[in-house]
Nucleic acid binder design. Structure first.
Length: 964
RNA sequence: GCGGCUGUGGCGAAGCAGGCAGACGCGCCAGGUUUAGGUCCUGGUGGUGGUGACACCGUGAGGGUUCGAAUCCCUCCAGCCGCACCA
């Protein structure tokens, strides 16, 4: 290889080889950096230009990638796909006159560095910063045009100072329902002080002790501490957000079991924003699939709360009400029993001492064989509590439960309905209690069958099953039917459709004071504290009463202390009966501080939890806008310039945000929530952070497995006659993720080392549409390399290095090819269709190669056209063509419409939809003339064979279809 | 189970508003350069039949709408993703 390379090199010293490409690429990367060509000026502040006014005149765009966690393994070829795409897009925008903000930061707090630190004792900052340096180097070598002045890292105190500051904004706010927005907590305090709002127990605000006031405010703050059932993961030694727990009750990270535990934790009141988070999705240019996932996760459902009277057994308590949430109040007449979640607080107070007497005795299914309801309920609750989510899930098919011994009253039918405890009703949703309508709900149906409960049909089935549910195989759940069997002395729903019936019964319940229309959400408040070292400390201290105080901005950032042992205390992953213990709590000197928070120096204890990994990524787009501002989170002028709402993006936000679909609910929901709080408090002018979202597909790779099913190194597999061999043994092939465990990692350096960076960029863009996953095929990369070599040869003599373009005036055909390419490439780049843009550039190149020589004006425009995709070779050729300035801000050529119109068009003549002839006709030909021409064509006459022409459809100038 | 997305040559894919299916690339075949192989260059390449200009068949399967369907509608199948007792 080395020998032949040198042969080739001596024969053609100026050929575009990997060696020459490497020189070119290094040279241009240095020059871009030295000249700061990607620096995007701000209107004001340290990043403003001398010519700030000039920049403000230009159109501008903010392009962003989801920033990476800098892992120790570095990048593989799958990672840069989106980065290259945004770079190509950003470069294309710069070449159409835009001021483009494009940079890259690092999401650098995280578990791997901490775990490495636990193992080796190396400070996570050391490993993380080394990894960041490596990433920066790799990103630079891909020729990505980032404004490096704007690059941030979430672990820098200068950055997390503002993460903490935003936390305090949230902490010091409440959600005012009257304006549906966050307001400063001081406004709430004023309402309490003035008496405009009553305290929970009616005492005057001034009569409350500080700790009591704190407790009251805690019910309103958007960030608050709460004793709540949380996801406790002993294996990780930390608690997790709902979003971080998989459906089978394990941690998304590490796959450890997760248990419910009642712990005091920081929460964020994201539920207050549920409506706005759903509604504002309509303002965004996001893939529908992602919007749908967010809507489903928030899970808004409209229904009603209804009270069922129930007799309590506690002395003197009298009757109580079980409040249920239902989306089908129209089926209230069909409610034949009720279910409480095992954790429901009313359970204890309604259970009677003895089983009620019933005709023929209670079924065994109801009593579970226990002598008293107390025993039966206690045992069932014990079992339910012991179940993990995994077991609960596995048991989902078979319904379990037990009768409480109590009856409630159906408020419309007046019937006594038995009250059950069953774990198919979840405490965390609605009111933790349901009215069961077995005839019209599949879950209730299954339960009713298992427990021999009565059913009543109140919705007329639209099929032929009849109205006796005892003969049915399944419940009838449809919304598209009429209500029957639903009347009492005061109201009748009979004959109404579902929608009308819902409204009628809801109004009636409200008038009776036993129900009201309500909206319910699946979304839970966001668990915001973690028992970790490597995260942002909370800017919170506690006084001797345990009251939380926020630190003033002047005391930010609260930096992480140096400690000996970075690990949280972890436990046997299966031991649910454990408590978290934070690493920071061991840093005694840091924890106990004397501070003057306005009323003289006092002793305080710092909060020792840290923020979750999502905190830093919740607002980094804002810091990109104004990375050096030390007095405010972002200057409002700069924010409005880059992110402010416009006619085209009503909610404002980043113009284009590219990243993987795996962040559909986590990062994207949290970031939207924070942004909305900042918007409400007047810190930003945009109410959404990301206007257009684009999910890039994944680059996958072949995985080869031996006969035992273990992956073998993909790089060492050989193909012979369609069969794959590893060490002469046949292996199977499939498509999988790129990763170490599947032994199919391809590093970008393997490609750039053999070909060039531009080759890698071009190949990744040419492989297919950006949003589709596709397999990496190392063999196919050479195609992109050949394209660049051909491009090079059309302009440079490989032997002499001289420019070989001609000074001739391009002919008509060449101008057509050129302008077609200009038009196609421009529209494709603007539409993020990079694969077809590459194809059109290739077509032009192939045309020029065939032509044999290239006129200078054509060469120059061709170079500009490929510059966004393959910037290094384009810069080099641009320079060789005599230009001294970098083409970063050169203008992309615009197509001359005169050359986009063909002077003759191929018209297809179809007979019965099949192509029988082709005619070359002028584009302006009219229908009648074209029809005459087509019918006279010999091939058409022959194909018709004298058959009678019934109808002729003419779409001049492209098509004639003859019907016989 | 519910919801969503995707099915086009040997492979990655084009075809964006219903009008020439397969642009561009890989691979493969033939030829050229080369002592040879590789690189590089030129040409060909959906399938079947024919020496042949050509014919027939072809966009997961089946049906429908239409002069005309990869594209629109219905049913089914397969793969991927999300949610998962959410009342």
């Amino acid at each position: 290889m080395s020998e032949s390379t040198s042969e080739a090199a001596s024969a053609a010293p100026y050929r575009y080889t990997h060696a020459l490409a490497a020189q070119i690429e290094a040279r241009w990367q240095d020059r871009w950096e030295k000249d700061g060509v990607f620096a995007a000026p701000n209107p004001v502040g340290p990043l403003a230009d001398a010519d700030a006014a000039g920049a403000a005149e230009k159109p501008h765009a903010f392009i962003m990638d989801m920033f990476p966690y800098p892992s120790g393994a570095g990048l593989h070829v799958g990672h840069p796909l989106g980065y290259i795409a945004t770079d190509v897009y950003a470069r294309h925008l710069r070449m159409t006159g835009y001021n483009v903000l494009h940079t890259m930061g690092f999401d650098a707090f995280g578990l791997p560095a901490e775990q490495y630190a636990v193992q080796t004792g190396t400070h996570p900052r050391v490993t993380t910063e080394a990894n960041i340096a490596k990433y920066r180097e790799q990103l630079r070598s891909l020729g990505l045009g980032h404004d490096l002045r704007r690059s941030i890292s979430t672990i820098d105190p200068s950055y997390y100072k503002w993460t903490q500051w935003i936390f305090l904004q949230i902490f010091n706010s409440w959600f005012d329902p009257s304006v549906q927005a966050a307001r400063p907590i001081s406004e709430l305090i004023a309402k309490f002080e003035s008496g405009a709002m009553a305290t929970p127990d009616g005492r005057a605000w001034s009569a409350l002790a500080p700790a009591e006031r704190d407790e009251v405010l805690g019910e309103y703050r958007l960030a608050f501490v709460k004793q709540a059932p949380v996801n406790w993961c002993p294996g990780l030694g930390t608690v997790l957000a709902n979003e971080e727990v998989t459906a089978d009750g394990r941690s998304e990270r590490g796959n450890f079991p997760v248990f419910k535990a009642n712990l005091r934790q920081w929460m964020m009141r994201i539920t207050a924003y549920a409506d706005r988070l759903i509604d504002d999705l309509d303002l965004l240019d996001w893939p529908e699939a992602i919007k749908l996932q967010q809507r489903n996760w928030i899970g808004r459902s409209e229904g009603a709360k209804v009270d069922f009277a129930v007799h309590t057994t506690e002395a003197g308590a009298g009757d109580a009400a079980i409040t249920v949430f239902t989306t089908r109040p129209d089926t209230l007449f069909g409610a034949t029993y009720m279910v409480l979640a095992p954790e429901h607080e009313l359970v204890d107070s309604i259970v009677p001492a003895a089983w009620p007497t019933a005709e023929g005795g209670l079924p065994d299914e109801w009593t579970g064989g226990f002598a008293t309801p107390t025993e039966a309920v206690a045992e069932y609750r014990r079992q339910a509590a012991a179940k993990t989510d995994i077991e609960r899930q596995a048991d989902a098919k078979t319904k379990t439960g037990v009768f409480t011994g109590a009856y409630a009253v159906n408020p419309v039918s007046g019937e006594l309905v038995p009250v059950f405890v069953a774990d198919y009703v979840l405490m965390g949703y609605g009111t933790g209690a349901i009215m069961a309508v077995p005839a019209h709900d599949s879950r209730d149906f299954a339960f009713a069958r298992a427990f021999k409960l009565p059913m009543r049909c109140v919705v007329q089935p639209s099929d032929d099953r009849g109205t006796d549910p005892s003969t049915w195989d399944e419940s009838f759940d449809s919304y598209d039917a009429a209500i029957v069997n639903s009347a009492n002395d005061f109201i009748s729903l009979d004959g109404l459709g579902v929608v009308d019936a819902k409204k009628a019964i809801t109004d009636w319940l409200a008038s009776q004071g036993i129900g009201e229309g309500t909206v319910n959400f699946k979304l839970r408040d966001w668990l915001f504290s973690r028992q970790r070292y490597w995260g942002e400390p909370f800017p919170i201290v506690y006084d001797e009463d345990g009251v939380a105080h926020s630190l003033p901005q002047s005391m930010l950032p609260v930096e992480l202390p140096e400690i000996e042992d970075y690990s949280p205390r972890t436990f046997d992953p299966d031991d649910a009966d454990t408590q978290p213990e934070t690493p920071l709590s061991r840093a005694e000197e840091w924890v106990n501080v004397t501070l003057d928070l306005g009323d003289g120096p006092k002793q305080y204890r710092r909060e020792t939890n840290t923020m979750p990994n999502w905190a830093g990524s919740c607002w980094y787009e804002l810091r990109y806008v104004d990375p050096e501002d030390d007095t405010e989170v972002v200057n409002p002028v700069n924010e409005a310039y880059w992110m402010g709402p416009t006619e085209a993006k009503k909610a404002g936000g980043v113009d284009l945000y590219v990243g993987g679909a795996e962040h559909a609910v986590l990062h994207l929901l949290y970031a939207r929530f924070w942004h909305k709080v900042l918007f409400d408090l007047g810190h930003v002018s945009s109410c959404e952070p990301f206007h257009k979202l684009f999910n890039q597909g994944m680059i996958q790779a072949y995985v080869y497995r031996d006969e035992r099913g273990f992956p073998v190194p993909a790089a060492e597999v050989e193909e012979r006659d369609g069969v794959w061999y590893f060490e002469d043994k046949v292996v199977s092939r499939e498509i999988g993720k790129i990763g170490k465990s599947l032994k199919n990692v391809v590093a970008p350096e393997e490609v750039t080392g053999e070909y060039s960076v531009d080759t890698l960029r071009l190949y990744e863009m040419a492989m297919g549409p950006l949003d589709v996953s596709r397999p990496w095929d190392t063999r196919a990369v050479v195609g992109s390399f050949r394209f660049l070599q051909r491009l090079w040869r059309t302009i440079v003599d490989e032997e002499t290095g001289e420019v070989v373009v001609t000074e001739e005036t391009p002919d008509e055909e060449t101008l057509r090819a050129l302008n077609r390419a200009i038009d196609g490439v421009r529209t494709d780049l603007a539409g993020l269709r990079f694969n077809t843009a590459v194809a059109k550039a290739t077509e032009l190149n192939n045309f020029l190669v065939k032509r044999g020589s290239t006129p200078r004006v054509v060469a120059e425009q061709a170079v500009l056209l490929v510059a966004p995709l393959a910037p290094h070779i384009a810069e080099e050729l641009w320079e060789k063509l005599g230009h001294e300035e970098s083409l970063t801000h050169a203008l992309l050529p615009e197509a001359d419409p005169a050359y986009l119109v063909e002077d003759s068009v191929t018209c297809v003549v179809q007979i019965k939809g099949k192509v029988r002839a082709r005619l070359e006709v002028p584009p302006a030909i009219d229908d009648a003339e074209l029809e005459a021409l087509a019918l006279a064509d010999p091939a058409v006459v022959a194909a018709l064979g004298g058959a009678e022409v019934r109808k002729v459809i003419v779409r001049a100038p492209k098509l004639v279809n003859i019907v016989v």
